[in-house]
């Protein structure tokens, strides 16, 4: 479904991604792991058109989308749940959901009803401003907002960041449900153990490169992963 070939991303003189290659198959949950600054967020931003690759290719359903502009990605079927949720603070929950469906021309009321079923708390708060929601509620809204575009591929950037462990469980359960309903998921996470338990496959990034990759269940027991990432997250 998604294939990245030797993609390079630069911020001015700094090279953030030194030619990374990976793929995501339809129906999978794939996770990108790595320390801060390894290039995970940059990778997701590249996959939403926020940073065009300086060289290399991004193929989505066989189509080269490396030069596609950010505002055209939603219509392609790629939705991005950005790091820090980025809810529109002065819009109501309902308006945030409507923003998610911005490029759609058909009626969205049915999908909105479905989101309210999946996230009952959002229904309760649908007239409240985005800025008045708790972190967990905002994360649910950010995911629901992205789903309103009816994506084929959902990109999630640090969905567990800053959330209480119980909420994290809920969010990951929802991500599992999203995949079951037919949407492919690429998730970037610091919380490696949670991510690997959910994902099918994982890529480990280091300094703007993909260091290694494997089936998630294998990575979960990989010594390098355990030492570097799981050690931290198990203790916290």
């Amino acid at each position: 479904m998604l294939e990245v070939k030797d993609a390079v991303v630069r911020y001015g003189a700094i090279t953030a991604l030194h030619g990374i290659s990976f793929s995501v198959e339809r129906g999978e949950i794939v996770t990108l792991l790595g320390a801060n600054g390894a290039g995970k967020s940059t990778t997701l931003r590249m996959l939403s058109g926020l940073h065009a690759p300086a060289s290399g290719q991004i193929l989505f359903e066989g189509r080269d989308i490396s030069a596609t502009k950010a505002h055209d990605f939603a219509a392609l079927g790629i939705s991005h749940v950005p790091e820090g949720r980025r809810i529109f603070p002065q819009m109501s929950v309902e308006e945030n959901l409507e923003m998610g469906a911005f490029t759609r021309r058909d009626s969205v009321t049915e999908d909105m009803g479905r989101m309210y079923e999946t996230f009952p708390i959002l229904k309760e708060r649908r007239k409240q401003l985005g800025s008045n929601l708790s972190g967990g509620e905002q994360q649910m809204l950010a995911i629901a907002r992205a789903l309103m575009a009816q994506p084929k591929l959902l990109l999630l950037d640090e969905p567990s960041m800053g959330l209480a462990p119980m909420i994290v469980e809920t969010i990951f359960a929802i991500i599992g449900d999203i995949r079951s309903s037919g949407t492919t998921v690429l998730v970037v996470e610091q919380n490696a153990s949670q991510a690997l338990r959910l994902a099918d496959r994982g890529y480990v990034m280091e300094n703007g490169r993909i260091a290694f990759s494997d089936a998630a269940s294998t990575l979960l027991h990989d010594e390098r992963v355990r030492a570097v990432y799981l050690g931290e997250s198990v203790e916290s």
Partner: peptide, 18 residues
């Protein structure tokens, strides 16, 4: 809504297709 979205958070607005 598109104008307000850009005013509040232009980058996120573009992710929504604005």
């Amino acid at each position: 809504r598109g104008i307000r979205a850009v005013a509040q958070d232009a980058e996120t607005a573009s992710l929504m297709g604005v």
